[in-house]
Simulated assay, not measured.
Amino acid sequence: MTEAAATQELVITRIFDAPRELVFRAFTDPDQLAQWFGPVGFSVPRETVDIDARTGGHQRFVMVSEQDPNMKAPVAARFTEVVENELIVGVEDWENVPGQTESSGMSLRVEFHDEGGKTRLVLRQGPYVDEMVGMARAGWESSFTKLDTLLTA
């Protein structure tokens, strides 16, 4: 049995009721990322977060299941382009993602657009195998609900 090829790109557009500077900072500030990243049922311990938010920099952290703390998902990304308050582009390495080989990486592009004091975020990530796209979308949407709460606090 061969593993399916990863061919699907996930695209999510969402409006946040906060200026793009605050939304961008939530992605690049280790303290804030630890507060919102990961779907409901997962957390990111602050001590696992290391971010160097610049072109050529990196982002590393570990998502941990709240139900089973032994279930961990390390994430490491290399930033290929960072434009403050506008754009984050990189390649992510996730462990145990179906369709992804150790060296293949997954592209991530996050755009931050001003919408009259709000932020329109456009996220592109992939490639995914078909059966993983829905799970990834649900994970991001759940994380973004947590981000909404952080931004309105």
Rank of each mutant, 00 (worst) to 15 (best):
E115L: 14
K118D: 11
V89M: 14
R25T: 13
T119P: 11
V129C: 06
P45K: 02
Y128G: 05
L22R: 14
V40S: 13
E9T: 08
A53T: 02
F24G: 08
R60N: 09
E47Q: 05
M63G: 05
W140C: 02
E111F: 12
P74G: 00
V91R: 09
F61N: 09
S43T: 09
I51P: 08
M1N: 15
G90Y: 06
V64T: 05
Q100W: 11
E115M: 14
V23S: 08
R14C: 09
T145S: 13
T145H: 10
A5P: 12
N96A: 04
E95S: 07
G90V: 00
R14D: 13
P69D: 08
V49T: 10
L123Y: 02
R120M: 09
T48I: 01
D148A: 02
H58S: 12
T80C: 04
T80V: 03
V129R: 06
D114I: 00
A73C: 09
A153W: 11
R25G: 09
M1I: 10
V23M: 07
R60F: 00
G56Q: 04
A153Y: 14
V62N: 04
V64A: 02
W140R: 00
L151A: 04
V75N: 14
D17Y: 04
D130W: 12
G57N: 00
H113G: 10
F24Y: 09
D17Q: 06
Q32H: 14
A136P: 13
V129A: 07
L150T: 11
